[in-house]
């Protein structure tokens, strides 16, 4: 397996000016020290609650938000250093599908125009081949060719999301960020779009960064899953491992909150106390320590390193040392 993207210590901070006259500066720590290698053809999912920086991760990798630090190595080039013009040739390979199907398409353009734009701009087909290419793209996403003359407001949410996927495919990309790409759809449509994404992955050898908050979906489609909390990656593991033996206390709490089909099944809910702290002033040390049942002195002062506990299963926690013998029961 070859590495497609090598992401190292990627960070994104947003500087704000607060107060009536903008006299107080403040910094939102949306993403800190995000490091992961994304392999060609894999599906890496990022989960976490709202505001944890999942979407920022996708935007920072694609340089849609210029990263504040770190690097994104693609084909030997650090994308994080590139400005808009230098980035342009790489944009073709790295695409994104957004959450809201209602605002993802330009309401003044027909579907055909929307899909032609990247094809003509990157000269991926001649004017003469364009209709055939459009028909092919629409067919790829399960729509008939006559949709090309339609406007977005004439389509359903699921159809629009298919068009958004077709638009990403129009560039013939290698990597697609699916930023909550199915969250806004009906459950029945979610499954269709999910299957479509998986079919396209097989057909074109695509690599996905799948940003989501639905753990059941993530479990179904991912090769690896990363769990984020307050701008930092808490745990990263192959999907089966993560769901079978979650290591990080936050992951355990998160998984214990997944609804069960059987209401009488015995459950061991772990309720977290308190609220997520503000990313304007993230707690020092481990960002989870304010709510962690295992927190101790070290956690309050020192940021935990991202360590490999079992092969391929990494977590950032001082308390977890091995998959079995955690200090779970005996907080110091």
């Amino acid at each position: 397996m070859t590495t497609l993207l090598e992401i190292r210590n990627l960070s994104k901070h947003f500087d704000l000016r607060l107060g009536a006259f903008g006299e107080r500066g403040a910094r939102v720590h949306a993403l800190d020290d995000f490091s992961v290698d994304i392999a060609e053809g894999e599906t890496l999912s990022i989960v976490g609650e709202s505001g944890c920086g999942k979407s920022t991760t996708g935007f920072a990798i694609l340089n849609l938000h210029h990263p504040s630090g770190g690097s994104v190595l693609y084909k030997g080039t650090d994308l994080a250093q590139l400005d808009e013009d230098a980035m342009r040739p790489f944009r073709r390979d790295l695409q994104i599908v957004f959450q809201d199907p209602y605002s993802t398409l330009n309401p003044r353009m027909t579907i055909g125009e929307a899909l032609s734009e990247p094809i003509l701009f990157h000269k991926l087909a001649s004017k003469a081949d364009l209709p055939a290419r459009l028909a092919q793209l629409l067919q790829d996403v399960g729509l008939s060719a006559r949709f090309a003359s339609r406007y977005p407001h004439e389509l359903s949410g699921g159809q629009r999301q298919r068009v958004a996927i077709a638009r990403a495919l129009a560039c013939q990309p290698r990597f697609i960020v699916c930023d909550e790409a199915i969250s806004a759809l009906d459950v029945s449509v979610q499954a269709q779009i999910l299957n479509l994404l998986l079919d396209l992955q097989d057909k074109y050898g695509l690599t996905y960064l799948f940003i989501a908050h639905d753990l059941a979906v993530v479990r179904h489609i991912s090769d690896r899953v990363g769990v984020m909390y307050l701008g930092r990656l808490a745990e990263l593991a192959p999907a089966a491992n993560l769901f079978a033996t979650p290591l990080h206390p936050y992951t355990r709490a998160l998984l214990s909150a997944v609804p069960e089909a059987n209401p009488r099944a015995p459950r061991n809910r772990q309720m977290l106390q308190g609220e997520v702290p503000s990313p304007l002033a993230p707690p020092p040390g481990c960002r989870f320590h304010t709510r962690c049942p295992l927190a101790r002195g070290l956690c309050r002062s020192q940021t935990p390193a991202f360590r490999e506990i079992t092969p391929g299963h990494l977590t950032a926690c001082h308390a977890v040392t091995s998959p079995t013998a955690t200090n779970w029961e005996t907080p110091a």
């Binding site: 342009r88 695409q95 701009f121 958004a164 560039c171």
Partner: peptide, 8 residues
Amino acid sequence: TAARALGL
């Protein structure tokens, strides 16, 4: 944003 991501 999508248009930017397309490289336009």
